[in-house]
Amino acid sequence: MYAQMVKSTGEGVKDLKEMSPEERAFQERIDRGEKIEPKEWMPEGYRKTLIRQIGQHAHSEIVGQLPEGNWITRAPTLERKAILLAKVQDEAGHGLYLYCAAETLGVSRDELLEKLHSGNMKYSSIFNYPTLTWADIGAIGWLVDGAAIMNQVPLQRTSYGPYSRAMIRICKEESFHQRQGYDIMMKMAKGTPEQKEMAQDALNRFWYPSLMMFGPSDKDSVHSAQSMAWKIKINTNDELRQKFVDQTVPQAEYLGLTIPDENLAWNEEKGGYDFSEPDWSEFYEVLKGNGPCNKERLGARVKAWEDGAWFREGLMAHAEKQSAAKLAAE
């Protein structure tokens, strides 16, 4: 997802009987569906796992602006350009909601950014793929935002109050993103043979990376089991991936495009599609930093941060001077 392979305590889920009284009371509140709020007692593992997860999610929103930003100046019409600008601005907003949620757990914004820039925190693997044609912008909205929605809708019910509220805001806006992507795909798929070809090519390149967004199967992962007990993860990766495929296949059929998977077939028994797994060795390579655009993406982030330093400091110095002048005048 936007947060992939987030590690929790690694110890697995404790039985209620093995927990300290505080931990037990905490777990029972979560089991009752109560929200946990910033200043309340929480296990250290819960706090740390959430910082990792929300932080990674925030970083993904921010880095996710880069592949799309690539096409703002080259959008085919003024209307498409205005729409894409609005979408990219939304992504910045989503990142900011999430950073704020993470900060309520006692980590500072600068610390989070420092960890992103030094490679200690990750962002979603999907943003390390290039956007080669305009159809890629359609494919990203349709598939990448579509996959993100699969994960974010259930996370609106997550146990941590600020995270849940950020997710609710994000989900309201995300539907626009997916629809604008599909709208681009419809236009291309019904266009000239060359345009349709371009749409098919974008689907071919983004299909498996989109499936990777959900992360490898985690049905046996102790990290996921703990995160699910804490309700900071609601579904397994496989459940979400299946749901995504089942939803997307008819959408591709409507476009007259072909999902690049010869094993794709409806399975009456399970009431869903059978499909091929993505190449997980590619996924691990991308996570390690060896994807097609890792260096470019992180490089752009670090450059923006460093080039903006004088500006951030300047505004702060100005604000301090103004407030000192105001105090002196009083």
Binding site: G93, A166, H318, A319, Q322, S323
Partner: peptide, 23 residues
């Protein structure tokens, strides 16, 4: 509705406009 970082109150209002009232 949430929080944000800004150097002063005036910028905080401007940023809030962009972050929290886009629709």
């Amino acid at each position: 509705v949430g929080s944000l970082h800004a150097p002063d109150a005036e910028m905080a209002i401007k940023n809030a406009r962009d972050v929290y009232t886009r629709r």
